[in-house]
Amino acid sequence: MERIENNINNVVNNIRNACLKAGRNPDEVKLIAVTKTIDVDTINCALKTGITDIGENKVQEIIVKYDKIQYKPKWHLIGHLQTNKVKYIIDKVDLIHSLDSLRLAKEINKRAKRIERVMDVLIQINIADDEDKFGIGYDELDDFIKDMSEFENIRVQGLMTIVPYVKNSEEVRPYFREMKGIFDSLKNSNYNNINMNYLSMGMTNDYTVAVEEGSNMVRIGTGIFGQRDYSKK
Rank of each mutant, 00 (worst) to 15 (best):
K110C: 11
R114W: 03
I194P: 02
Y88G: 01
N190D: 03
K133V: 09
R155C: 10
S149H: 06
N109A: 12
N168T: 09
K146P: 01
S101H: 01
N197D: 07
R177A: 14
D130Q: 06
I127P: 06
I108N: 00
K133L: 09
D132T: 14
T161H: 02
D184Q: 13
E116A: 10
D130F: 10
T161F: 09
L141C: 11
K146T: 05
K146A: 08
L95A: 12
N188H: 13
Q124E: 13
I145T: 06
G202T: 06
S98T: 11
R173C: 09
M196E: 00
V163L: 08
S185A: 14
N192D: 05
F134D: 03
L159Q: 05
E178Y: 03
S189P: 00
E170G: 04
I162E: 00
L99F: 07
N190K: 15
G158L: 11
F176S: 12
L159H: 07
I162W: 01
R111I: 02
S189R: 08
L104N: 03
V172Q: 06
N168D: 10
V163R: 01
I108F: 04
G137R: 15
E178K: 15
S185E: 08
V86I: 10
M148N: 01
Y165F: 14
E131V: 14
N153R: 06
I182L: 15
A105M: 12
A128Q: 07
K187Q: 11
D139P: 01
N193L: 03
D184P: 08
K113E: 07
V93T: 10
Y165H: 12
D100C: 13
H97N: 06
L95D: 05
L102C: 09
K85P: 07
I125H: 02
K106L: 12
V86L: 11
M119E: 06
L186G: 01
D130I: 13
F183S: 05
S189V: 10
Q124C: 08
Y175F: 15
I123Q: 05
M160R: 04
R103N: 12
Y191H: 11
L99D: 02
N126A: 10
P174K: 13
G137H: 14
I115P: 04
A112N: 04
E131A: 14
D184M: 14
S169F: 02
R177V: 13
D147Y: 07
I90T: 03
S189E: 01
E178L: 15
N192L: 09
E131L: 15
L141F: 13
E131K: 14
F183K: 03
N168V: 12
E171S: 06
I89D: 00
I136T: 05
K85Q: 09
E150Q: 08
L159S: 06
D143I: 12
L186D: 00
L99C: 08
V118D: 01
K106R: 15
S101V: 03
